[in-house]
Amino acid sequence: MSIQPITFETTVNGETVEVTVPPRLLLVDLLRDRLGLTGTHVGCTFEAVCGACTVHLDGVAVKSCSVLAAQAAGRQVVSIEGLASKENPHPLQSAFQQTHALQCGYCTPGIIMSMAEFLRENPDPNEEEIRFALAGNICRCTGYSHIVEAVQIAARELRGKTQEKRA
């Protein structure tokens, strides 16, 4: 078998990088091992059930353990490191801190990436919609109540920001 490595450009957190990878490399490993972006976690040995590795691919929340790295060629990838900055955290990050919506924190980056996209699609969700939207992310510490609360607070905050912009 002769493996044909693939060289391609992709934009990660706003920065264009050129990489050469074997075809079987997973996107999550490109981020973590090649680019040192270890905020994207692997919680379920790549079985695609935990959601900890969720990133945005062209603005859409995907599990990066289920995408081959080279499928990101020419596309925009945003990981938790690129969502906001330390100085100006995303409203979800502030709300998670405020409501103590994490204990060990392992699942948190994936949940925040998934919910950030969810709130763009559905800015005013009710509790049932939030719980349904969380189905792709598993947290084994919190019991979810505080996570739901954090998402509600962040949703209000984001709606406020949108209204400010309009005004």
Binding site: M1, I3, P23, R24, L68
Partner: peptide, 12 residues
């Protein structure tokens, strides 16, 4: 749970 080697990947 990791892919076996893949020879080539194409994106037509």
């Amino acid at each position: 749970m990791y892919p076996a080697p893949i020879e080539s990947l194409h994106g037509p």
